[in-house]
Design a protein around this nucleic acid. Structure first.
Lengths: 215, 215, 215, 215
DNA sequence: AATGAATGAGTGTTCATTCAT
DNA sequence: GATGAATGAACACTCATTCAT
């Protein structure tokens, strides 16, 4: 619980009190980390791109890694925020009768977020493998909390008779990789292709729910 | 075409003529690149782990990047090898009546490969974003050739009446992300979990083909 | 002469007009300079320890070295103060018939001073070798004026027949190093040992006087 | 015991296997450390003065501090070497009937050593206060072993009736500070003055012995 | 008077690469 | 073929000092 609070406190602290220079540093860092990777981006390059002195970076962020985490931790927190609200099931009951509707709503919602945080998200998934702290945050928040919530959610729709009798973890994995597959292809692999987003989502949800086989 | 030749030539060159020291260098490099990333692994660390002098690395590989490519390019080539054989369709006709069977066979086959080349594969997907040459190789070989072949393959099964009438690229994307989703979760996220591989594949193919909806 | 005035002016300036913050800065600086040395102590560390902003230090002391000198120069001045009074010989005639008595009185007096200014004294002797200004002050005030005065003083007691016929400079050096040897061992090397100060002084004076005394 | 071995192993290892560049680095470092102090000497300055690349320093010495210790530890070891030979007392019995003779011999011997290692010795005493490892070495080797040996030695001459009945530690301290007082004044304070070394030693020994001698 | 953000030169150290042996 | 000493540019980070508030 305190962990959760922490991650969200970081989130808001940062959002508000960023000085102008700090803002520029973060922007430059995001751009460069995404393009060349954290390890291959030097603080002097960030400083130059941000138009500040190199020392200024270290006045705001104790280390280069601090700067990375200040970008990537809040992104992870915001990414999973919709799933850690306390009464998710109530929302679902009230608003989404069908798993299909829930999926569609969720994809749209997260797509909106990713569209605006694509670069930070890219950094997040690129750097997770190299930083134990990130791995740990990922494990704790996503692999455990969100996954578990999602499993219960699938159970919920199973009880309603909407989902076939396969193990819920497998269903969750299948749903999740299909969704993230779409979003990653859409925003990371081929971001400049001409997409009809709504239709792609529609089709993806349809394939998840109905599969691609005939009759 | 010459690119393609290149990639395969490298593949076989390497396999055969590796001296003992070279073998040790490559092994050490694979282990460290996977763990800490290319940029964060120093040639001196590789040399130490391989038990050779630092200069020896540069006798065999002109640059550090050469060493990376000697690991990663053949891996990409081998990974997609089954899809670039000239008469894939004939094979399919002869052996796999149903898309389902093809999928199952393919997943099993690639799983076998990944199991033995997991570390190199990990490096491959981790480093692609940071190296234009790799991006280009990926684009040319996978995003174009393999994807295209896959699309024709889906068309093939569509004509047989086995696949619903959605745009083939969407179907391919869906199939591919579901499969890679499984393999990545299985081998990269949770490699030490207790998996019943055969059953997972079974279920995944079933979900791709039938979806998760009821009735 | 103007130098001398300077050194004493500083001495009193400081004593009186120190603001509260300034006091804290000086205290923090003394503590840290003694422990880690001038060069290895950063102004930011001093500021933090003093509980003031870094800029505040530079409002009171133009440079970091100014801060050092404001600590060390007055200490040197006070240390040698008893020797630069104009009519030392009269005092001696009036009060100390024997060299022995003079030595004992002097050691006791300087010991009192060192006990209370040990840390600043430590800084003084540690930093003298690295700062030309301090070397110069030392040379001018101690190596010349005080030494010369001491030589005349030994001559004085020689005339009284109390000191053997060795060159006065050698006698002075011997007396001085014996005394400072005691004080340095006592206060810098083994400050927390259990000392019987009076007895140590007694013995040291006895050894010096036996050494150079006449029958 | 193993400590002792260590310190002497360093001593000889180093003496022999120094490459030409390493020799130059050490020479440059000694010169600069003595002049400006360890903390105020930068590795780039050392490199420049030694005529090598900065990286070369770190090929031979893992850190800047390693370089310091490689200079200063052997110096301390050699300085105290004559006192840690196993059968010091036998030597004394055989060669020096009188404390006076022993003192004279020892001063001459150590003076010879200091003359040739003055700069390293200067660094040693300047840096001891700032480096816990050096403090510890000093405490262990000098403050304990050598001091203790010296005390027994004074006891030895006391039994022979040559030294007055004052506590041996005080006698040792007095002798030692008088001797080091001479050597420090001679070699550090006023190295370029015109000294009659033999006569100074003669006088100092005389004053010490008169001071603590019997009859 | 006091602050603390900003600076840019400088720090110790690591790097990929070269080359004489 | 293999070595490892040597390089100098680059690295993350710290420094004393300035100045607008």
């Amino acid at each position: 619980m305190s962990e959760e609070k922490n991650i969200f406190k970081q989130l808001f602290d940062e959002e508000e009190s960023l000085t102008e220079k700090q803002q520029k540093i973060v922007e430059a860092a995001i751009e460069m980390f995404a393009e060349k990777g954290y390890a291959s981006t030097s603080t002097s390059q960030i400083a130059k791109k941000a138009g500040v002195a190199e020392g200024t970076i270290f006045r705001h962020y104790k280390t280069k890694k601090d700067l990375l985490l200040s970008i990537v931790s809040p992104t992870m927190a915001k990414l999973i925020a919709p799933f850690v609200i306390r009464d998710l099931n109530k929302v679902l009951d009230a608003k989404y009768d069908r798993y299909e509707d829930f999926l569609k709503a969720m994809i749209l919602n997260r797509q909106e977020f990713l569209k605006e945080n694509m670069t930070a998200f890219k950094i997040l998934i690129q750097e997770i493998p190299f930083h134990p702290e990130l791995k740990e945050q990922f494990r704790e928040h996503i692999a455990e909390k969100v996954f578990e919530k999602f499993v219960r959610l699938v159970d919920h729709y199973k009880e309603k008779g909407q989902i076939i009798d396969l193990p819920s973890p497998a269903v969750v994995r299948f749903s999740a990789t299909s969704i993230f597959g779409l979003l990653i292809v859409r925003y990371l692999f081929l971001p400049e292709a001409d997409w009809n987003d709504e239709k792609e989502i529609e089709m993806t949800v349809q394939m998840i729910v109905n599969g691609i086989g005939k009759g």
